[in-house]
Design a binder for these strands. Structure first.
Lengths: 202, 202, 202, 202
DNA sequence: GATGAATGAGCATTCATTCAT
DNA sequence: CATGAATGAATGCTCATTCAT
């Protein structure tokens, strides 16, 4: 990477970090491009050299932050010696939930902005542009293939789990609604196990 | 009701209906109060006689539309002679899903704007201010009491079902993601049955 | 006065009192006719039965409050047995200043809104529509006639005194600018005595 | 100064001049920011690049115009060979009054908006940001020090003179109230001489 | 590539005034 | 007399976007 390119990346990163800060404190609608440029210490025009508009920036942020979440969880999971699919999935879910519990700002940001559409990109794409990591999708299918039974409709299963987890986390962790998350957790994890069980090709 | 009062209600309803139309076609952010007032055929100032701002109006709309959905589903369910809790709940879920499938605009509007916070109001309040209907919460507990087993943490169970259904519907019905809804349906309903089963106090 | 007329007067007084309250707390520009009507407990339309607009009301308030000030001061002065013009005028000035010092809200309101144009009406008109009081102008000329010397240009003398007193009071009593009023007072009163002396026809 | 900086100053000046014109013809309340921007030939948004709001602009105008008045009067006074304080002060007062008599629009604008608070800034600050002029306050104290007697409470003396002159000018010059200014003038100037005399430390 | 002054469309909100009841 | 719902012009202010430097 040339010096210039490094400088460019610095600017872009500065905008990304500043924007995350502002989005999560002021809200996306109330954050203007002026705000971002000012806080990032770049000129307003510079913003447009890197992002189409505020929502382009937002989507890139959501993808990046979400993929980091998965990457970390998978890395941690692989250190364990888990023998079956249910345990592996529950571990990943649990790890992600723990990350979010200790970073409620991130939870709020992701929950409000993550749709299945964006999520598909997240799990399909390599987590970083220029690295050797496998995508989460590949890891997922590898996990499935290691079992001695087959999973029917693995995409649907993943979908059900992701939607259930993300929507319940948001309400329960951030607002204790309908009750504190710890009380919901056993039922949630049982539900996940049931979902997996329902997809087992018997 | 005096002539004036009727006229007032007419104006308010006109604004509500117009706003729903605009919110679902242009989106809430892009719909201005001018748009609403113009389309509703009232002066801009009139809007402020009935609503605090755009978001006050939005919340009132979400509540109203959601409660209608439940009211219809429960009414239909009661006409059946369903003997057990799972069947009743699945029936209600299925009825609501059918309503939403035939009214995708409504689905889009509710899914984007219904949080558990608003939902709590919806199921607690009578569906209409001055009528004899029971709230959905009452109906739900009555349903539970008619079984010869007990449900552990009924609020959590309701929460899990509602979050799972609403988040999967949105993506699957509107965008066929991860696949068409009909393929997801059996797994979804099985998941719901599992969730209920997990809450049975054995 | 008929019952109806009494009721009307009540409404009018209610508007006047409420408006004074609002004008002095929120400021005249930021007080709307709605504010006044709401606080006074009358309908918005009713306002227009009694006043042309906000500024009509304001002028009537200024006149009324100012004339009360003078009336009180003159009444107190007449109880004293003051033998010469300087002492009488200084007494009146001092009495008014004391009233204003103990009612800074009133001072603020009058100072901001009293122009010589309004003041002329105040000193010319009877203090109340239907009573036997003399106007301040008559009292002033009677005071002058009781001296054994003549005052040259009595209107100019009154003008100079009123302008000097009112502009210095505002700044000194309310904001202690350029310094606390008590320190300015002896110089102010000496200035007034000098002004009177300058108008003595020698 | 770069081309850009010159252009910026031009824009700002254009807004200032236009605003003065509008404030003095339509009044401040009735002058909208749109009016100012339109007349100045700039976009509405440009206004906000230079001023916080209408009242920020107004205060800057009052300060600037007042300081110009004093600067001119002092310059003229210094050309005379006046030997004593009274004559110097009367000369300055007279010069300012003459400026105002020939520029009634300016008189009206300053009289309505100059408070002692703003005046203090005017006499303290250098008349222009980056020049060698002394502030009026320095000039005033230098004048006092050249006398062979002492002035007690010079701030109060200045205050009394300024308040007396400004409030009488407004009414007399603009509205001939209570009578034409030329008839009031001798009494006013005598009053000023008396005020100075009262502050002489005898 | 980077800047930031300038733009002007666009928006929410207020409020004096009217008039049918 | 009194009401208060309805009006819609008017205003302050924001902000994404452009473009000359």
């Amino acid at each position: 990477m040339g010096k210039l390119t490094i400088n460019k990346q610095k600017k872009k990163d500065s905008i990304l970090n500043t924007a995350f800060e502002l989005f999560t404190t002021k809200g996306i609608v109330k954050t203007s491009i002026s705000d971002i440029a000012d806080s990032a210490g770049v000129a307003k025009g510079t913003f447009y050299l890197y992002f189409k508009d505020k929502y382009d920036l937002k989507n890139k942020l959501v993808s990046y932050k979400s993929s980091q979440l998965f990457k970390t969880a998978v890395t941690n999971m692989e250190k364990q010696n888990l023998s079956n699919l249910e345990d592996k999935i529950i571990f990943i879910v649990d790890d992600i939930i723990n990350q979010l519990k200790s970073n409620k700002i991130l939870l709020s940001f992701i929950a409000k902005n993550l749709s299945w559409g964006i999520f598909k990109n997240v799990i399909t794409a390599d987590t970083e542009a220029d690295n050797e990591d496998n995508s989460f999708r590949e890891i997922y299918y590898k996990m499935l293939s290691e079992e001695n039974f087959e999973i029917e409709e693995p995409e649907i299963m993943l979908f059900l789990i992701v939607e259930l987890v993300s929507s319940t986390c948001y309400s329960a962790i951030l607002y204790n609604e309908p009750t504190e998350f710890e009380k919901i957790k056993p039922f949630l994890y049982n539900s996940i196990r049931s979902i997996i069980w329902n997809h087992k090709n018997k």
